[in-house]
């Protein structure tokens, strides 16, 4: 019999701490923040950082697309059971796009961009499996960054060009959270990346 992936800890406390970390991650782009580690020791069918963020951001009214690396039925079941999220079939319908690995991202332009009146209706992309040990020499600048900071992970091929387009769509455009190794870094649409 398979071990069921239960979580019975204090969800409220976890979500509040995690929300604080996510706020900080967007306020200080590209500067990794510690995620609360309550889920780190649980046996989960998906990366625990991603599970914490999903638990914090998603509920019954969120349309969520699960991208590559999150295909297992158990991962789906866990997310649906604990967040009540609505799974959608196509990334372009999703409020949140969760991806299990940074090397296989959906096209940013194919996600919800929001509208000029409601730029907040754009998608938020959450990417797990980020390795924060590499600094590829890309500089980030923009609101929340004094001068510049180095991008703390190596982006997938072609990401920089996509990001430039995304940045240019401001005030519309998507925001991204990169998580892994117990940390999360925010990449809001206002941040400019330059090699």
């Amino acid at each position: 019999m398979q071990t069921p992936h239960s979580w019975t800890g204090d969800t409220v406390s976890l979500c509040q701490h995690c929300f604080r970390a996510l706020l900080q991650a967007l306020a200080r782009p590209c500067q990794p923040q510690e995620l609360p580690g309550e889920l780190a020791k649980e046996s989960l069918p998906l990366p625990w950082e991603l599970a914490s963020i999903a638990l914090t951001l998603c509920d019954q009214s969120s349309a969520v697309y699960l991208g590559s690396g999150l295909g297992s039925d158990d991962a789906h079941a866990w997310l649906r059971f604990y967040t009540g999220m609505n799974l959608v079939q196509s990334p372009c319908e999703a409020d949140f796009v969760l991806v299990g690995t940074p090397c296989d991202l959906p096209l940013l332009a194919s996600l919800k961009q929001g509208t000029a009146t409601y730029p907040d209706r754009s998608a938020t992309l959450v990417v797990a499996g980020t390795d924060f040990s590499a600094q590829p020499g890309i500089l980030a600048s923009g609101p929340g960054i004094r001068n510049t900071v180095p991008l703390p992970f190596r982006p997938a091929d072609g990401f920089l060009a996509q990001w430039r387009d995304n940045h240019d769509r401001f005030p519309m455009g998507v925001d991204v959270f990169f998580c892994g190794r117990g940390q999360v870094a925010g990449l809001p649409r206002t941040t400019l990346l330059s090699a």
């Binding site: 019999m1 992936h5 866990w78 059971f81």
Partner: peptide
């Protein structure tokens, strides 16, 4: 086939 852990 996965066990139906959540299919109650």
């Amino acid at each position: 086939m996965q066990s139906q852990a959540y299919d109650a």
